[in-house]
Amino acid sequence: MSPTRVLSRFAVRIALLSAFAAFGCIGFGRSLAALLWMSVILCALVGLLKREPLLGPALNHWDEAVAFGALFALVHIANAVA
């Protein structure tokens, strides 16, 4: 899969997660954190099921899981500070 396609898929997922989090009744930050955590799990499961290499030369679902995990950490820290 091309890196452009993976990055565009990631951007679309972030936009959708943000839109769904905006309508969450527990607040945007907590909703976004929960959705990001679910995305980490989903990407890791898809990477596992497709048997993608963990540290492969091309972007894959494992890299998306790491990116979602980093965003989850940022949102979680921001929620704890606020």
Rank of each mutant, 00 (worst) to 15 (best):
A65G: 10
I41Q: 11
A11T: 11
G29T: 07
A73P: 01
A70I: 06
A67H: 05
H61Y: 13
F23N: 09
R30E: 10
R51E: 15
I26L: 00
A11S: 06
L54D: 03
A21M: 04
R30A: 12
I41P: 03
E52N: 05
V6I: 15
D63L: 06
A22G: 07
I77W: 11
N79P: 01
V12T: 06
F23R: 10
A78E: 07
A11I: 07
L45F: 09
L7N: 04
F23T: 06
K50Y: 15
V75M: 10
A70E: 02
L48Q: 05
F28W: 00
P57D: 14
I14H: 04
L42T: 05
E64N: 14
K50I: 12
A22K: 10
R30N: 13
C25V: 00
S8H: 07
V46T: 00
F23P: 00
S18W: 15
L48C: 12
S39I: 04
I26F: 00
L17W: 02
S31L: 05
A19E: 12
I41M: 07
S18V: 11
V81R: 12
V40M: 11
L59A: 12
E64M: 14
L7V: 02
S8K: 10
L32H: 10
G29L: 03
L17K: 02
G69P: 09
N79S: 11
L16K: 06
F23G: 13
L7H: 08
W62K: 12
L54K: 05
G69C: 00
V81Q: 08
A78W: 13
R51L: 13
L32K: 07
G24F: 01
L45Y: 07
V12Q: 08
I26T: 08
V46H: 06
G69K: 01
N79I: 14
L54H: 05
G24M: 01
H61E: 14
S8N: 10
L45K: 03
H76Q: 12
L49M: 10
G24N: 00
A58K: 13
R51Y: 13
P3I: 06
M38I: 04
I26Y: 01
G47M: 02
P57I: 14
F10C: 10
L16V: 14
F28V: 11
A70F: 04
A65I: 01
V46D: 03
C43Y: 03
A19R: 14
F23V: 11
R13F: 02
I41S: 12
P57E: 15
H76G: 09
R30D: 03
F20W: 11
V81H: 10
P53I: 04
M38K: 08
R13A: 12
C43A: 10
V81C: 09
A11R: 06
M38H: 03
L55N: 12
L71V: 00
A65M: 11
L59Y: 08
V46R: 08
L35P: 04
S8W: 08
P53R: 11
H76A: 15
A65C: 03
V75I: 15
P3M: 06
V12P: 01
F20S: 12
L54Q: 04
